[in-house]
Amino acid sequence: MDHPAQPPQDVVVADAISAELQTALSAVQAVETRCKDAFLPLLRDHGIVRVEVHYDGGGDEGAVCDVNAYAAHGDADLPGIQCDHHALEYNGEVSSRTIALEDALSAFAENAVCARHCGWENGEGAHGTISIDVASGTVGLTHNLRFIDYETTETEL
């Protein structure tokens, strides 16, 4: 009697890791959707059309540096209002709290970067921008790696 061929062990492990990563990514995306559902209407109601959140991870530290808001005709101030913020904790649970809108946008950006670029704050660090288009509800992440490079030459004398 013939037995069906079993996939090699490394294929089974890779498939399990891939499934686990997809589950984790789905959880991250679900929490990000909840965050966007909380802050987008607030921004829209206050005439904000775009938000840019800048982050920098130089010097083995990571931080959100600036949260800039823009109205249709230039710079705008973020309103000093409260916003619900949701985060995926290490144990897989979702935590929720109400914080200042600017803090919610900062936390959203930091969580998005951490979910996609683990270790962005290490070494020379990375830097980038989270861009939020309020009308369309789209969020873009421009991430820039920093690294030290060198060139070696060897000469026999």
Rank of each mutant, 00 (worst) to 15 (best):
M1I: 07
D2E: 13
Q6Y: 14
Q9N: 10
Q9S: 14
D10K: 10
D10W: 15
V11A: 14
D15C: 12
S18N: 13
A19K: 09
L25K: 15
S26L: 15
A27L: 15
T33V: 11
T33H: 05
P41R: 06
P41W: 12
P41C: 08
R44E: 11
V51C: 04
V53S: 03
V53A: 05
G59L: 07
D60Y: 11
G62L: 05
V64F: 05
V64H: 02
V64M: 07
D66F: 05
Y70P: 01
A71G: 15
A72Q: 13
D75R: 14
A76T: 02
D77W: 02
D77G: 06
C83F: 04
H86D: 05
A87P: 00
E89I: 00
Y90I: 05
N91P: 09
G92N: 08
E93W: 09
S95H: 10
S96F: 02
S96H: 09
L101Y: 10
D103H: 06
D103N: 06
L105C: 00
S106I: 02
N111T: 06
R116K: 05
R116M: 01
E121K: 08
G123E: 04
G123L: 04
E124R: 06
A126N: 06
H127N: 10
H127Y: 13
T129E: 07
T129A: 04
V134F: 01
V134N: 00
S136E: 05
S136V: 00
G137L: 01
G140Y: 00
H143M: 01
L145F: 05
L145R: 05
R146L: 02
R146S: 08
D149G: 14
D149Y: 12
T152W: 07
T153D: 15
T153N: 13
E154Q: 15
L157N: 09
